[in-house]
Structures are given as C-alpha cells and as structure tokens.
Design a protein around this nucleic acid. Sequence first.
RNA 1: GGUCCGGUAGUUCAGUUGGUUAGAAUGCCGCCCUGUCACGGCGGAGGUCGCGAGUUCGAGUCUCGUCCGGACCGCCA
Length: 604
Amino acid sequence: MHGPRTFTCGALRPEHIGREVVLKGWVDTRRDLGGVIFVDLRDRYGLTQVVFMQETNAAAFAKADGLRSEFVISVRGVVDSRAPETVNPKLGTGRVEVRVTDLLILNPSEPVPFPISAHEEKRQNTAEETRLKYRYLDLRRPELQQNLVLRSKLYQATRRYFDTQDFVEIETPVLMKSTPEGARDYLVPSRVHPGRFYALPQSPQTYKQICMVAGLDRYFQIVKCFRDEDLRADRQPEFTQIDVEMTFATEEAIYGLIEGLMAAIYREVKGVEIPVPFPRMSYDEAVTRFGSDKPDLRFGLEIRDLSSVFHESGFRVFDQVTAQGGAVVAIVVPGEGDRGRGAMDRLDKEVVRKRIGAGGLVYFKLPSDGSETYSSVKSDVLPTAVVDRAIEACGASKGDLVLLLAGPRPKVHLQMGTLRLVMAEELGLIPQGADGPWEFLWVTEFPLVEYDEDEKRWVAMHHPFTSPREADLAAMFDDPGAVRARAYDLVLNGSEIGGGSIRIHRAEIQRQMFNLLGIEPDEAQRRFGFLLDAFKFGAPPHGGIALGLDRIAMILAGASSLRDVIAFPKTQSAVEPMVQSPDEVDARQLKELHIALALPPEKA
RNA sequence: GGUCCGGUAGUUCAGUUGGUUAGAAUGCCGCCCUGUCACGGCGGAGGUCGCGAGUUCGAGUCUCGUCCGGACCGCCA
C-alpha cells in the first residue's frame, strides 16, 4: 500500500528535506518518550530515525506503540531537519529524520534470542553456538553483513581481473572420483552404480590440468573444495579456492599474474595500493630464519644459529647436539630481560616442553639496569665466557631476553618458529584488525617429497603432479629428500593463502613420481590413467596455483575466524547448527543406495 | 586420537573455605514520561546451575564419566 521504498535507511541527507519518502526495514531501537516515539529503522545500508508524534498523527502513533525490536515495517513520511542540538553525528543520516504519516507493520517479530542492533553499544558477544543456530539473525548484524559484502567484492574483483587477462572460467565437476594421497575424501554413493562412490573434489587439480592438455590455455575458477579433516579457526571442511592454471607457465609468469590479482583485489576491495613484486624466500631460508614455511614478516625475533658458539663449549647437552649435526638456535626477545623466574618456568614447562615438545628451554636474561647477565644454566655447567660469546653472537643487549633451544635440524628450527610466534603474541607484536600491515611473501623451492615416518614411505609435499626441478631429476632415485620441486606458496602475514606448482606434463616423469610415492603402476593407471593417457597426446607444459579465498577474505576483514566470512559455516565438529547437518537419512534412501550401516556399538 | 578453556535467567556474566530463598546488567511484561538517539523513572515475571553418577548431613561449588562450544597438537598432497 506504500509502494516500493523510495530510499534505503542509509540514504537520507539534508538535501532531501521536505520530500515525502517511503522507507522499509527492521525496528532496531524504539525510544518511547510518552507523547513521541522514536524508532531507528535499520536495513543493510544504515539507520534512519523515524518519528511518531501523538499530537500530529494519533493513528500512526497508536500503531507505533506496539512496535518491538526486529518488527519489519514500512513507513511513509516527510523528511525533516533536526534542530542542531538533536543532530546525531554518529549516523550518516543523523542530520535528518522522517516524520511518519503512515505506518505499516509488514511482519511482527518475537523477542530475539540475542541483540542484533546496529548500535555498537547495544551489542554483546553472544556465544557462537547460539549465533550459528540463529544464523539468519546473526547475519542481520552489520559487521557480518559487511564481511559478506567484502567477500562479494572479492569475487567480483577476481572475475574482472582474470577476464581482463583473457582467462576462461570453467566449471569442473563436483562429483568426481576419489584419489589416493592427500586428505580424506567426502564420498557420495552412486544409486545407479551400486557399491561405487563419487568423491567431492579436494581441489579440481586433475581437471584443470586436463583443460591445459585441451589447449584452453588460461583457466580460472572460483570453486568449492572439500576435505574431511579436523577443523581449525582457519580451516573449514568445505572452502573456496581461486583456482588458476596456465599453459606454458613459468614460476615468473605465475608470480606476476598473482601479484597483479592481489593488487587488484586490494585496490578494489580496500582501496589500498600494495607494492609488487612480492619478496621471495626459499623454503630452506624460511625455515632457518623463521622456523616456518609461512613466516610472519610483520615482526622480527629472527632465529640465530649459535651452533658454532656452543660446539665443544663444555656444556654437555649442547655439545652432544652439535656433535651429532644438530643446532643450537636462539631468538632475542627485546625488553623482556627482567622477566621473573615464575614466568620463565611456566614458559619452559607449559610452552616449550608441553606444547612445542622440545627437551627444555635455556635462557639468558640481560637486566635493563645493566646488572649481571642471568643464565638459566649455572656457570659451573655452562661457562660464563660461553654465555658472553653467545650473547655477543646473537647481538643481544641490555634489557633483552635470549631464548635457546637445541636439537636436530630442521626440527629445532620449527620448534623455535613456534616459540617465536608464542612470544610475538604474548608481547602483542602481531597486529590485529583489518588495517595492515600486509606482508606478502613467495616461499619457493619446496622439497618435492618428505619422508613419512609412520607410513615408512615418501609422500608428496605439494601433490603428486608437481614437477621436480630439471637439475634434480637424477636425485629422484638415490636421494629423493634432496629433490626440490617447482612449487611455491603465497604467504600473507604468516598465513598460507595459496600454493601451486609447475606441473609434470610428461607421462614418463609422472610415472617416476608415482613410483617414488609407492603408487603401483596398476593403481596409478586405475586412479590417474586418464591423466597419463592425456599426457601421451601432446600435453603442453603448464602450471598454476590455488588461492584460499576464505582466508584472504578473513585477512581483508580482519576477522579471527573463517566462520566470520562464511555465511553458513560449520562448527569445530563439522556440524552446521542451523539446519543440523549432518543428519540421519531414511532407511529407504539407504536401501536405494545399497548401503547398510555398521555403527560402532556404543553409538548404535 | 590428544592437551587446554568454557557451559549458571532469553542474552552477557558474578557466585566466597561446600551451608538458609542462586545474584547483577541487559532483554521481556506492566505503568509513567513530548526531543530521544544504547532515552529515562517505578514495578513485575523469568533458573532442569549442559547431562549422569559419586563423595557429603548438605553440591552451582569437590571427584569421575559424558555431551556441546572454542583454541591448539596430531591430521589437513
């Protein structure tokens, strides 16, 4: 009866004063002063104060008396100015208000289970469980809406960019086939083929390579991927990748392409110019200097190797480690030289031993008042002269704390990398929020394979289609661990946001790779025969990358969990609390699929 | 599979060495209020203390188990 809305709730300005308007939205806040009722009307675009006066419009006023939070209403009224003392500078629309002439209640609302308001002061941190159960209410909150809008802009920027670069967006099947290696698959039973299963893609890897063989040249896709593994704050079982593949690609071509993409995304989504090209670092250097294959470059605390200082120093624990080719590594923590004994003991016990799993922590404290250095190891066991040399070698000075770990490499570096992150977090060195800084990094020259101690075999570090470096081909037989792959990761602020490689395009090398991974020829043929066959028909060299769109969105939004940039995320136990999935199905459905349940007795 | 944190009105939380009737804020309901903007004032209703055992004269509080949520390790090519 009011017709369409003439403005959104974020639109009205003084220039609209005097106009008759229709607004529709949700009742955010109702302030009843007796003879006058103010309502903050909310939609995705903002808040507008609408006014009901008993004096001037008794009918609308009487109706407004019944309004409650989250009622959906339509108001017709006239835009009016607000007296200078009643202007609300917090609202974009705060210089005007709408004097309501007619009110329609489009739908009432029961009291909501948690506050939704656009007023920051009214919000509180509702338990995520409750928020997810009523996700439609949670998503009414402006910050989540902003995250989803940001995410949408991310899609659009990505598509525009690849379109200008002459890429073709190609959809690959969601129902594909299970592959060995990698994460657990989500399986989908086939009704038509009893006993057979589709698998949901962990990534469209093989399909996009086939597209290259097909000569499609430049492929991209914004695509859902599925991995049935345990969740984390930055890991959901279904997630979205920006998947890319190029014919005749070199590492340099990929780096340049993706740097252009990230620059376009930052420009269009955040209005920020990020410097390109991104710095690069080999895997070995990343592990040696930062104890991680995804170093966070936003703070220092670099790892120093003090092995030479402690070699044959007389301190038995360190002597043994260095004699066996291990390392003694240190980080210098500025400003912590006065830490108390209790805090250090807790660090040793809770963090170093329990969480990191290292043998123990050695530390030197250099008090800020310049007094004598304190070593956690007594001087009759670790000579003072050695301590002084170590401090000199790592460049520590007054007021610093030096933390040392010893052990085999590269394990000790990775342990120190964890300790580095713990200290950085404890000291507040890690910037929070959505305003940067943005430290991009290419990590290059990954090992092709790593040895799995549990399974007693080599496993692909990236995936089985990653090309070894030409120069390392010979070593695939006699020293697989030394072979470097043509693989790379894109790291942003200590988070892996993408990874890719130049692929194997020759059937013979692909066969060698399967052989190294212990995949028998007949299994390789069964699982990947189509790819091996395809390689026989003029497969061009090619390579690509996949970027984690959810993680990029999370970093752009300054969110601390993926759940805040996904409309309907799953909990840590992979449940979606609103629809309650996963769920049981009818016996009839199972029968049709020729599936019988064999549940563990306690769950049956 | 493991470690740690949490679960108390609708919501966010407090709850002492185990001790009478489990509190606050907010929301909700009622009344009052014509310029508020998280309006304000007065009054009221609202609780299987996640669930189940155990210890005890007595358990929100202690013990064990279990479920749910979260952080992390394992896992995630």
